[in-house]
């Protein structure tokens, strides 16, 4: 039992050393993490680009949308002046959670080399 744990520790140590010495295995692990984080950031930017970036275009091609009122206020004012801020915060919150999960996965991978 004790020997088992020691062996696992040694393997974890070796993976850490592989990271630090930039062996091919370590290099591949880091590349995977960078790619996962970049893909996450790009996916969430796409959400913002469509959600907010589409608005000027939408208002331009469908001017009637600008005249629609909700509770006496024109829709563009509500979308830009109020709704955009919670939307941005929600995207940011999702990013922090998912980015931390990616890092946790990476840490698990490094510390449990059998997987």
């Amino acid at each position: 039992m004790l020997a088992e744990i020691t062996r696992q520790d040694t393997r974890a140590e070796r993976t850490r050393a592989e990271l630090a010495q930039q062996t091919q295995v370590g290099e591949a692990l880091v590349r995977g993490l960078v790619r996962a984080q970049l893909a996450l950031a790009l996916r969430l930017s796409l959400v913002v680009v469509i959600g907010l970036g589409g608005l000027p275009w939408l208002f331009a091609i469908a001017p009637s949308l600008g005249r629609t009122t909700v509770a006496g206020v024109n829709l563009p004012w509500l979308l830009l002046g109020v709704a955009s801020f919670p939307f941005l915060i929600a995207v940011g919150w999702a990013y922090v959670r998912l980015a931390e999960r990616n890092e946790q996965d990476f840490t698990d991978l490094v510390q449990r080399p059998e997987r």
Partner: peptide, 10 residues
């Protein structure tokens, strides 16, 4: 890249 992207704990 290793330094920029890996958690400090490692």
């Amino acid at each position: 890249m290793l330094r920029l992207h890996t958690p400090e704990a490692l």
